[in-house]
Amino acid sequence: MCYKVPEFQSLVLTGWNIAATGTAMFRVVKKLKLLKSDLKELNRGLFSDIERNADVAYNLLVDCQLSLQQDKTNKDLMDKERYLRQSYYLMAAAKEDFLRHKANSEWAKDGDTNSAMFHQVIRQRHVHNKVLQIEDKNGILCKEPDEVLQAFVDYYEELMGTNGHTTLVLEHIIRQGPLVHDTDWDGLCRIPTEQEIRGILFSIPEDKSPGPDGYTSGFFKASWDIIKGDICEAVQNFFVNENKLLRVFTRQIASIRVHEANKTKYDRGRVFW
């Protein structure tokens, strides 16, 4: 919420100029960690009890506008109305963001301050993320919750939890199917440009839930001109130093085959129903 106030840019600029040593990713994590307490304090000072403050800002604006109607040439009232209008717009936007993030939280279903729309979105998410039925390894369709759960457990136990003999996979058999060429692998492992990193980051909606560090994409968008150098270096450094691991990972992803004909099976990390 504090991303839209003038104090935000100067606060980030001061915090980001703190000297940090180590790898590029370590420097980014350290700066974000040190900056978090200052951002919390700014957010607490400006937006604590945001719902009540938004209502107060609205009432002050209405009172000022009524007074201005009685004295339309009063310059002081004009300036005051302009200031109160900007303040109300800021508070109203912060209130909307607060309710949106609250609706994304698991405990929102127990709150009574959200609108019916937010509760409907929460119910839709629960339905969308629920696996109602799935075929087990024997091709039997499981519909009961316990049976669905056991189908997943059996699949992973057979995949990773046994010590049985592994049949050698013959390369000539693999090559009979669709393949990902070396040029495609090189493209997946290519070091991204600043424009590509920015494009991916800015494609993330600001109302998505924050990451483990508590930062949403809104922070990175609002402070991009300040932090882009360190962020891009950290991302590009991963592609340089972890290139070997990344190639193995991309080969594993590329080997996933989707069963288009029967979309009720669990196959290599994908659920279809």
Rank of each mutant, 00 (worst) to 15 (best):
F26H: 14
R27E: 04
R27T: 00
V29K: 14
K30V: 13
K31V: 04
K31E: 01
L32R: 06
L32N: 04
K33W: 10
L35Y: 02
S37G: 01
L39G: 05
L39F: 07
R44W: 05
G45H: 11
L46N: 08
L46H: 07
S48D: 13
D49F: 10
A54D: 05
A54K: 09
Y58I: 08
L61T: 03
L61K: 12
D63Q: 12
D63W: 08
D63I: 11
Q65C: 03
L66T: 15
Q69V: 10
Q70F: 08
K72Y: 08
K75A: 15
D76S: 14
D76Q: 12
L77S: 00
K80A: 07
K80D: 08
E81W: 07
R82V: 01
Y83R: 15
L84E: 02
Q86W: 06
S87K: 13
S87T: 12
M91S: 04
A93K: 11
A93Q: 15
A93S: 14
K95R: 14
K95M: 03
D97R: 11
D97N: 10
L99S: 01
R100V: 15
A103W: 01
A103S: 13
N104M: 11
N104I: 04
N104H: 04
S105R: 07
S105D: 13
W107N: 15
K109C: 03
D110C: 02
D110R: 08
M117H: 14
M117Q: 12
F118M: 09
V121R: 12
R123E: 12
R123N: 10
R123V: 09
R125W: 07
R125Q: 14
R125N: 14
H126L: 13
V127C: 05
K130N: 05
V131A: 04
Q133T: 07
Q133A: 11
I134F: 02
E135I: 01
E135G: 03
D136T: 02
L141A: 00
L141Y: 00
K143I: 08
E147C: 06
L149N: 08
Q150K: 10
Q150N: 04
A151K: 00
F152V: 02
E157S: 01
E157I: 10
E158F: 06
E158T: 09
L159K: 15
L159S: 03
M160C: 10
T166N: 05
